[in-house]
Design a protein around this nucleic acid. Sequence first.
DNA 1: CAGTGGTCTAGACCACGTA
DNA 2: ACGTGGTCTAGACCACTGG
Lengths: 253, 253
Amino acid sequence: MGTTQLESVPEPKYWHLKTVLSEALDAEFSVGEILPNERDLAARFGVARATLRQALEQLELEGRLQRRRGVGTTVAPPRMGVAVGAHGQAWPGEADDTWQPLDCMPAAPPAAVAGQLGTGREEPVHTVRRSRMSHGQPVAAELLYVPAASVPDLSAIDVPSGAARARAVLRELQRLPLQRQENAVELGSARADDAKELDRLPGAPVLVVTTRYLAADRTAALSVATYRADTCRLTFGDSGDVEIHHDPENQAS
Amino acid sequence: MGTTQLESVPEPKYWHLKTVLSEALDAEFSVGEILPNERDLAARFGVARATLRQALEQLELEGRLQRRRGVGTTVAPPRMGVAVGAHGQAWPGEADDTWQPLDCMPAAPPAAVAGQLGTGREEPVHTVRRSRMSHGQPVAAELLYVPAASVPDLSAIDVPSGAARARAVLRELQRLPLQRQENAVELGSARADDAKELDRLPGAPVLVVTTRYLAADRTAALSVATYRADTCRLTFGDSGDVEIHHDPENQAS
DNA sequence: CAGTGGTCTAGACCACGTA
DNA sequence: ACGTGGTCTAGACCACTGG
């Protein structure tokens, strides 16, 4: 008897390390503060650097830490609430200053997108790039696919591309009666171009929000927006400004 | 001249490996098929096992692969669409057979939850555990917090705990007039208990959906549901059964 | 029991940001 | 030039699953 289970389920080192670090973050560090570098931390805890990194990766995934090459590891602020599809139901660009149109060019969308739009393979559609800022930093990069059929009155000649073109496409789109929109969220990893725009490394975890805009029972436009998973909490159905304190022991919120 | 940039931006090996594997999955493998083991794969590509694993981890994060210790690595089916908050606005357990109540016990919620509920610290609330199945596998584990004030007519005596108690709490909750509900989605990692219920390892990536149920301008209940991020695509505002084909080259959808 | 993925080590070198 | 995190290696052992 006694001995109380004697480590019959040995916790992995990196997991225990993560717990210890997490508690230390709550107790001894404040937002923005710089942690000791990885080599020192690993030595202090008596583990290999790779093991220490495994713990840091988890904490970064949960939005507790921010790591930047050449700079260091800092304590991240709580995730910001970002409203998605909150304007009830509205076209993109409608009374919307959170998204900034960058440019627009005709291009054949990926097969999955073409399938949902109901356009033919290799058929070019208007592809609008937009960027979303919040609290002074980029939080999302979007590709908005608009079939030519959805903006029939768009004059192709005056402005062939650029931000002005993007605004023109959005303006034309808003003339259609919006039936409803459907949102889907899934986990992905940042493509090289998105990563650059989001100020992250390629492969960084992102929340991919796919929005279908329906008009007259057809998909009039499709938006694929990639949000930084480390800094964002996506909110649906409200204004998205609820403050949430941190809950030690894992997960988030 | 010539030499066309000569690798001035050398892609990391694991990233290139991921691309190669991803294309191989599309071209030469079908869903459910078993891949060669990690040691063989690493040898075949001439890299260390750790590097190969880095590529596999990314592909698993994107829902392309499924790895199980002691078994092997298999090709994952496309993510399933899971409807979240789609019944317009309804209480949990209302005409809802996707969630299965497991049990219910009084417990003091985490500080973050207590804050949103407006209950005092250490004040116990009804804590309902539910499990969600889809296509025969568990996709989400939920903790639903219901303050005593929201279910005033609940008799504390007859059924102190268990699934029957959980159903009783849900039934009482539905007598309140539901004002609206607010959803938030963020990335997290599975706690040990959630991981077990979701048939994953602790720390596995999950999508944490927090739902506030509002009645009479108060938070009448709060749900924290953790969905498997590898197998689920969360849908808002529709029935969530859209089929989506796979898009090679990264991300998801 | 053999074979799988999961954890861990102790090194090395590289890419990047800052000074 | 220096210090940071990012990548990579070649091993070792452990935990789990299945026959």
